[in-house]
Amino acid sequence: ARLLHGSIFAKVIEGLRELVNEATWECSGNGITLQAMDSSHVALVSLVMRSEGFESYRCDRNMSLGISLVSMSKVLKTMGKDDSLTIRVNDDSDSIIIAMESQNQDKFADYELRLMDLDSEHLGIPDTDYSCAIKMPSSEFSRICRDMSIMGDSVLICTTKEGVKFSAKGDLGQGSIRLVQTTNIEKEEEAVIIEMKEAVALTFAVRYLSMFCKAAPLSPQVGLSLSEDTPLMCEFKIAEMGHVRFYLAPKIED
């Protein structure tokens, strides 16, 4: 699999590695997918990178590759900003080859990472018709998670037709941030758009939402989909090739 802009792949890994330290990559002719839960089984991530999004892609037989995302992140940090990236696994090999090429082809770096034997569990994620779908700048969402974490461990997300409100309370007191729906969309990237069938009020752990925000550099906009008694879906699109979707179980009355 070859990417002209290897930084896209580095951003994917940075977006996942804190939530899941290691994961099984499923490779097929259609592309690369990954599904993994965090160690406490509170959140789940689902990654799709379609073959047509790569500069070139070939997969002769389906493969499951157990990879340490922490190690891969370290290797990808050595990559230059404008480097292209090729990922290769040879038949019957117990390692993955990560090759980087500088833009003017005067530097070539190759790394081999040992594959891991991982127990992987695959959950079925149903198609959900969410009560609310919010789109907002991903930088804004990161900021809100950071700001709410000052006040408490949990954030209550409430939606109305007018907007969306995030609130948190704790020993210090409480705080809230309300975003109003953008009425005059000039720049789509900066817009706050709320599609609502029913109002929702759901509580989530800020710590996990903040981890999801590690994937924010992938896309200028984040999608939050919410329904009562259903895990939140937080989606970052990967330009032209797929998405990273995070699912987070809500906090419920004890």
Binding site: H41, V42, L123, P126, T203, P231, P250
Partner: peptide
Amino acid sequence: GKRQDNIRAYFENF
């Protein structure tokens, strides 16, 4: 009080 639910509770049966 609220407690953190498990993601498996929502997805594993589908």
